[in-house]
Each structure stands twice: as structure tokens, then as C-alpha cells.
Amino acid sequence: MISILDLLLRLTIWFLLTSDLSLPNILIGIAVALLIPRRYTQLSTLKDWLQILWEVVVAIPQAYIEAVEIMVRPHTEEDIVTERVKPRRTPGLIFLDVFVITFTPKTIVLNHHEDGTYEVHRIRRPRRKTKAKAARRPWS
């Protein structure tokens, strides 16, 4: 599964870069995408991929909302929490997980441990700590 997505990603970059949809260019693109070496680390399901891609799409408006939020009310406190990685994640999925968390301005992943946890650095508003704890991200 990952190999098809991988191929699609390469072809997308190729077409965006050349912006030319003629037949020779499509053939060249497919040839190049197939020829570039890749690693075979499988075992992630299509469902996981679709889910994380959807999370990436959702993360964009959410990032803007959070940006406005921290502009309007200053978040001056900072702390570090650990979050669990969902089980059976391949490196590609973990990369996208880290991307989604770091992309939103309030949270940055500091470290990813082998035993399946992320260290996440957050900023939040002063006081009302219990409320902030309760409003954790859904996958935590």
C-alpha cells in the first residue's frame, strides 16, 4: 500500500515541478518515480493512511484558529507532556503524526522515544490548569 502512495507522491511532485501533462512527460515521470530507490517497510493499512491524511487536512484550518487564539489571548505558560503513539505505526506514519502535532502552533514534538511515546511541548494560558489538562488532544 505504502508503495502506491509513495509513487503518487513522487508523481505529484514531478507534475507540479514540470507543469506539463503531455504523454512523454507522464512517461518520463512514471519512469523516474519507479527508478528512484525506495525502502520496503510495509504493514501500515490504507485506513491508517487515509486517516492521517485527513488529519493533515484538518490541521491546516486548526493551525490558523490556534494562531489567532494565541494572538488574542496570550499563552505565557509552557509545559511538557508525554503522549502515547498509536500502536503499530510505521516510520512514515510516525513522521506524519509528528508533522501534524508540530504544525499546529500550540504544540511541538520534542522527542520520540522508542517505547512509543512523544514528548510534546505546549504553551497554554496561565491559571486554570485542570481545564487545560482536560482539553488534551483527542489521540492522547
Partner: peptide, 11 residues
């Protein structure tokens, strides 16, 4: 701290 500045820089 560096991390706090990193949050605002990502904005």
C-alpha cells in the same frame, strides 16, 4: 526560552 520562541515562529 528557545521553545517558546519556536511556537511563535511557527505562527
Amino acid at each position: 526560552s528557545v521553545l517558546y520562541k519556536l511556537h511563535s515562529l511557527s505562527v
